Structure formats: C-alpha cells, structure tokens
Computed example of a mutant assay.
Amino acid sequence: MVRWMWLFKQVAYVVSAVAAYFGIRGATEGSVDAAVEHAHLIVEWEKSLGIYVEQTMQGPFIEHAHLATLANWVYIWGHWPVIVVTLVWTGVHHRDVFLRLRNAMLVSGLLGMALFVTYPVAPPRLSGLGFMDSVTETSYSYRVLQPPAFVDQYAAMPSLHAGWNLLVGIAIVSASTSLALRAFGVIMPAFMAVAVVVTGNHFILDVLVGLSLALVGQVASRALERRRDTRPVERVSA
C-alpha cells in the first residue's frame, strides 16, 4: 500500500509539472516576427558552422510518403507515450531511476522554458524557408496528444522533444537487463533527433541545445541523488 501511495504521489507531481509546462509554454507565445527573425538567424549560424543540412535531410521524406509516415510516427508516438510508459515502469520497479529521470526532466524543462520565454524561435515549417510540415499536414494524432491551445508554436529552441527522449533512453538503459530494451533505449533517441528535423519541427541547433540541456539536467539530477544518498540518517532514540 505504501509503495502504491508513493507512486500515486509521484504521478500527481509529474502530471502537475507537465500541465504547468504546457500552460506556461502556451501562455507565453512570443512575437511571431521575432520568432521568424530568430529562426533566420539560426540558419545563418548553422551555415557559418557548416551544419545547415535540414533541407537536404528532409528531401527523401518529401519524395517518399512511407518515409514521411515513419518520421511522423516516431515524432508523435515515440515521445509522450514512451515517456509515460517509462515513468510508470521505473516508478513501479526502479525507484532510483525514476527519481533520476523525473529530476532531470524538471531541471531541463525549467531551463527550456526560460529560453522559450526569452528567445522565441519559429520552427523550420513556420519560418518561410520552404520546409514541409509533415506532421500537421498528414496526421491528426499529434493534435490529440498536444492540443494547439497548450502549445507555443514558436518555441522551437530548444528541442526538448529530442532532449527528453535522450533522458528516457538513458533511464531505459540504466534500468533494463534486456538486450532488446537496452537497444531501444539507445536507438530511440537517435531516431527522435532525426525525426524532429525531417518533419520540419526543429533546426539542428535546436536539437543540439535540447540535448545539451537534457545532459545538464542529468548531471544536476545525479548531484541531487548523491546529496540524498550521503545525507546522514537520523537515529531514533530507544
């Protein structure tokens, strides 16, 4: 009973945090003109770094419908459904991994929201650069999972879609003894990093920053874990 009460409290805590994340993200939608301008600046930065390859990457997915469908499925069903299942699984069977994942998501989410508010960025599909919006054009499922009222369409920087999937992958690899699950934990974040780009939702720099913030969250979560583990246990007097 105690274990399930603990899990219920954790679920309530995570749901509240996610609701706050979407609420703040939707309520702080930045200026469209500024977001588009920032997107064009990101393109210039990527060109100077030699990594502006988004249109080249998206080309095959525009030409072949089955590839676009695969990318859409990874983007839609490989994110929140996988996150929820992983949180429940680790919460029930691997409490330490659950707490590590939860804290890493909270830290990186707070950092991400700070960027959403202060530096709005239009995604490639809304930047006027000729990118295809494969998810919105061909799938209704995503609007069910993430209603437009709760989504800031001009919060492409950073890509927590990629960052949080990296954290989930780390959690799966840490908790599982199954070779298949461990392989999924490694492959899934890589697939997501590609999917967010080829569906026209993020620039490569968005992905790199999202992955970096996720790793910052992971380091912070590990530090909190070490602090908790080294905290002296109070002795109960007889």
Rank of each mutant, 00 (worst) to 15 (best):
D96P: 02
V97Y: 05
Y142M: 12
E54L: 08
I170G: 08
H40V: 09
W6T: 14
Y13R: 13
F150E: 02
F116C: 02
T90W: 04
V84G: 09
F131M: 08
V11F: 12
F184D: 10
E46T: 04
I51E: 03
A195W: 01
T230I: 08
T136Y: 12
R226P: 00
H161D: 01
A180D: 06
V168F: 04
E137N: 15
Q218Y: 15
H161N: 04
A19Y: 11
M1L: 10
G217E: 01
I187M: 10
G169T: 02
T90L: 11
A214D: 04
V198N: 03
P81M: 09
A12S: 13
S212T: 13
L111N: 06
G78T: 03
L87A: 06
A149R: 14
S176F: 12
Q218L: 15
L87W: 04
I204M: 12
G200I: 08
L49V: 05
L106D: 02
L49Y: 06
F203P: 07
W89A: 09
F203D: 00
Q146K: 07
H161A: 00
L166R: 03
L111V: 03
L167M: 10
F191L: 15
Y154L: 12
V32R: 14
V18M: 14
L211R: 01
Q58P: 07
R222A: 11
A162E: 03
G112V: 07
W6H: 13
M57A: 14
S127V: 06
P60I: 11
S212M: 06
V117N: 00
G23Y: 05
A220M: 11
A35P: 07
H79Y: 12
F150G: 09
I187N: 06
H161M: 02
N201S: 12
N72M: 10
V53G: 09
P189Y: 08
W4L: 15
G109V: 10
P60F: 11
V219C: 03
F61A: 00
A223M: 12
V151G: 00
M1F: 09
G26P: 10
H202A: 02
E137R: 14
S174D: 12
I51S: 05
Y75N: 10
S108V: 07
A220P: 00
Y52Q: 14
L129P: 02
I24N: 00
A162S: 12
A183T: 15
G26H: 09
V194D: 06
N165E: 09
H202F: 05
A20W: 11
L106W: 12
P120E: 05
P189S: 06
H93Y: 14
Y154P: 01
A149S: 15
F184I: 10
V36S: 05
V18K: 03
I172V: 15
V53D: 06
A220L: 11
I204K: 01
A180V: 15
Y154F: 13
A34V: 13
F61S: 06
E137Y: 11
L166Q: 03
R182V: 07
Y13C: 14
T230E: 13
L213I: 05
T199V: 13
V194A: 12
E44V: 05
F131A: 03
I187L: 14
G128M: 05
M57C: 07
R3Q: 13
L49H: 01
N201T: 04
A183E: 02
H93A: 13
T69K: 13
L67C: 06
P189H: 07
